[in-house]
């Protein structure tokens, strides 16, 4: 599989409820240096790249931070094993 096969797909939870589109794949880097998938970042509307404002921590300009927060509202991380990729 390629990352591009996952990104942009609409995913559902175990009950078949729609979660949104996949915006990013989040991996934890293990002791051996291999990144293992732990979560999926889903977003209700946006299709493209999230410009980096989805990461925790402060990033300016203030207007952009607020604008990105509003445009991407509802964006959340879902643990990998709770996501159904039909």
């Amino acid at each position: 599989m390629l990352a591009s096969d996952y990104l942009g797909r609409t995913v559902r939870d175990a009950d078949g409820q729609e979660l949104g589109r996949v915006a990013d794949l989040i991996a934890q880097v293990g002791e051996d240096g291999t990144p293992r998938m732990v979560a999926v970042l889903v977003t209700p509307r946006w299709r493209g790249r999230l410009l980096g404002y989805e990461r925790p921590g402060v990033q300016g300009p203030w207007v952009f931070d607020k604008l990105a927060g509003w445009l991407h509202r509802g964006t959340r991380e879902i643990p990998w094993d709770e996501v159904r990729w039909e």
Partner: peptide
């Protein structure tokens, strides 16, 4: 350019000042 000039992963302590951001926006 404006977005990356604010990204600490790229610029560390050299990110935009408030003035640079106000002018940039």
């Amino acid at each position: 350019i404006l977005i990356v000039a604010n990204d600490r992963d790229y610029l560390g302590d050299q990110v935009n000042s408030r003035t640079a951001n106000a002018l940039g926006v």
